[in-house]
């Protein structure tokens, strides 16, 4: 696909995602029934879970693109990893900030050492170091490679972190959607969740594509500028 097509697809997906987000707002505040034990705060679920999904999905893209980037040295892969990491960090932040809001009401505490909470906090820091190493080098090529290495090590270590933190007793709600007996959520709640997931995915993919094409343009301009400078110097 050409860059123009990519950008158009991105804009279209982002617009759809925005409409979806408005729909989710309406569903959450006016349509979905209130959960019996957790009460109103459970409505945070429909923004918390979709952002969690995006945070991990985006990190998958980051790691995959990073690994192939180190192998093929294709600039486009690095740009895709960068765009995905930015989006992943945004959604990871949403997840980390909305989690305590929910926890404060349901569990009576802002923070507990609950495995999935800890895992997401660490994921946030891995994203953070991804950007940190990228910007902390004098040679940008080196920064790209460093960031890719952080992405790959992160994805290798995350399963291990997950195992180690779940080793302790868990307070987090048990899985309610993905389990062998089928979802135990109320159908209306399930529909809201699905709309939320679809919305977050569209928003992420749309903005990801837009960010990617902007990065393409930026590097083109940079290259032209360095080329012009080199020509002037010669």
């Amino acid at each position: 696909m050409s860059q123009d097509r990519l950008r158009q697809t991105g804009v279209a997906l982002a617009v759809l995602g925005t409409l979806g987000a408005l729909l989710v707002l309406w569903m959450v505040f006016f349509w979905v029934p209130t959960e019996r034990t957790m009460g109103i705060a459970q409505r945070i679920f429909y923004v918390h879970v979709p952002s969690a999904w995006i945070a991990f999905f985006a990190f998958g893209i980051v790691a995959l693109c990073s690994a192939v980037y180190l192998w093929l040295k294709d600039e486009r892969l690095d740009m895709a990893a960068l765009a995905a990491a930015e989006g992943g960090m945004v959604f990871c932040t949403i997840m980390i900030l909305t989690g305590p809001l929910w926890a404060r009401v349901s569990w009576g505490t802002w923070w507990t050492w609950e495995p999935r909470l800890v895992l997401t906090l660490l994921l946030w820091f891995i994203y953070f170091s991804y950007f940190l190493v990228r910007n902390a080098t004098e040679n940008p090529e080196q920064g790209k490679r460093f960031a890719a290495v952080v992405g790959i090590i992160g994805v290798l270590d995350i399963p291990l972190i997950h195992i180690s933190v779940t080793w302790m007793r868990s307070l987090h709600p048990e899985p309610v959607v993905l389990k062998p007996e089928g979802p135990s959520l109320d159908p209306e709640m399930l529909i809201t969740l699905m709309v939320g997931l679809a919305t977050a995915t569209m928003l992420f993919l749309g903005l990801f594509l837009m960010r990617y094409t902007v990065e393409c343009l930026k590097r083109e301009v940079d290259q032209r500028q360095t080329g012009a400078q080199a020509a002037q110097g010669a």
């Binding site: 987000a21 707002l25 959450v28 705060a41 409505r43 945070i44 930015e86 945004v90 809001l101 009401v105």
Partner: peptide, 24 residues
């Protein structure tokens, strides 16, 4: 408080995504 928290949660979501859009 529960309502406040729900509002805050969705506001955070919108604001952060909007922040990303603005940065792009």
């Amino acid at each position: 408080r529960a309502y406040w928290h729900v509002f805050a949660a969705y506001a955070i979501g919108w604001i952060l995504v909007l922040g990303w859009v603005i940065s792009i």
